[in-house]
Design a protein around this nucleic acid. Structure first.
Length: 276
DNA sequence: CTAAGTGTTGAAAC
DNA sequence: AGTTTCAACACTTA
């Protein structure tokens, strides 16, 4: 997936493609993508107009007329693309929103991990996933004070802690490896053993990284594309993710690749200090 | 053939 | 009871 910068890029690319369009028909080729009442999803959306597309963390919020919202999470490989409604179905197209103007928005997902759900606008907090989310990077709530007090409660490693969406919402595996390397913090450091000034530094690095990644339209490492089918540009700025076994850009020693809670993790054993 | 892959979740294990 | 870990989801590519 798309992490937060990629989802934001999808949101921005989606708006000009779908805003103002009216849904004529919804087709669920692979119904499991939709959670909740699937018959209602199909019947309620008919005739609704797309007002806007919002985002919270990695969730897209497609705003519709009559106070409805489609909550959509792309998980690992979900994508949207606009086609003419008579275009042949791709093997991995799973949901289609056909519009009255002859175009159709299709949700494509090779791994079928993505999920979408129809809710009443304003009830996002009661939705699985969104309900427990923490603060977003670059938001006014993401302060040193908040970050320090949250990390003090955690006895697990910092890598896993940063991936925990209930603390910071939006970071994923790529950006976590990058920000830990830039902050010179070893991924296996215990969260509550990291000094306050280091946490403060990490917070600044996270904000800067996310901001730059959004500017560069996200990272394409596997198959990620925005709604126009365009790749991101931030992969050219990645310093450690995907560079295991290569030289550390700072010290020249070999970057190591290990597994941390099941996730591939690249770090520099020389630059990154372990706090435990 | 095997392993790994941008994420989340619910259940199991502490 | 709160916290942490881990398998599962489904499929492709190296």
């Amino acid at each position: 997936m798309p992490e937060m910068p990629e989802v934001e890029t999808v949101r921005r690319s989606l708006i000009p493609l779908v805003k103002g369009k009216i849904i004529k028909k919804v087709t669920l080729w692979y119904p499991n993508i939709v959670t909740g009442d699937r018959d209602k999803f199909v019947s309620e959306l008919k005739g609704k107009k797309i007002i806007d597309v919002d985002r919270y963390a990695k969730f897209l919020l497609i705003r519709l007329s009559d106070n409805l919202t489609i909550v959509s999470h792309l998980r690992m490989e979900g994508k949207y693309h606009l086609v003419l409604s008579d275009a042949p179905k791709d093997k991995h197209d799973h949901v289609e929103f056909e519009f009255t103007d002859g175009t159709a928005l299709r949700y494509n997902d090779v791994r079928k991990f993505g999920r979408m759900q129809l809710i009443d606008t304003g009830t996002e907090r009661q939705t699985t996933g969104i309900g427990k989310l923490g603060v977003e990077p670059n938001s006014a709530e993401f302060t040193d004070q908040y970050f320090i007090s949250e990390l003090k409660k955690k006895k697990k490693n910092i890598k896993n802690t940063l991936l925990d969406q209930t603390i910071i919402a939006g970071l994923g595996n790529i950006y976590v490896d990058e920000v830990l390397w830039k902050s010179k913090i070893h991924p296996l450091s215990i969260a509550n053993k990291i000094p306050d000034d280091k946490i403060s530094e990490l917070r600044k690095v996270i904000n800067k990284e996310i901001k730059l990644a959004i500017e560069k339209h996200g990272t394409t490492v596997h198959t990620y594309l925005d709604a126009n089918g365009e790749a991101g540009g931030f992969q050219n700025y990645l310093e450690v993710y995907g560079h295991g076994g290569e030289e550390c850009p700072v010290c020249g020693n070999t970057l190591e690749k290990i597994k941390v809670n099941g996730r591939g993790t690249v770090f520099c054993p020389t630059c990154q200090v372990i706090y435990k």
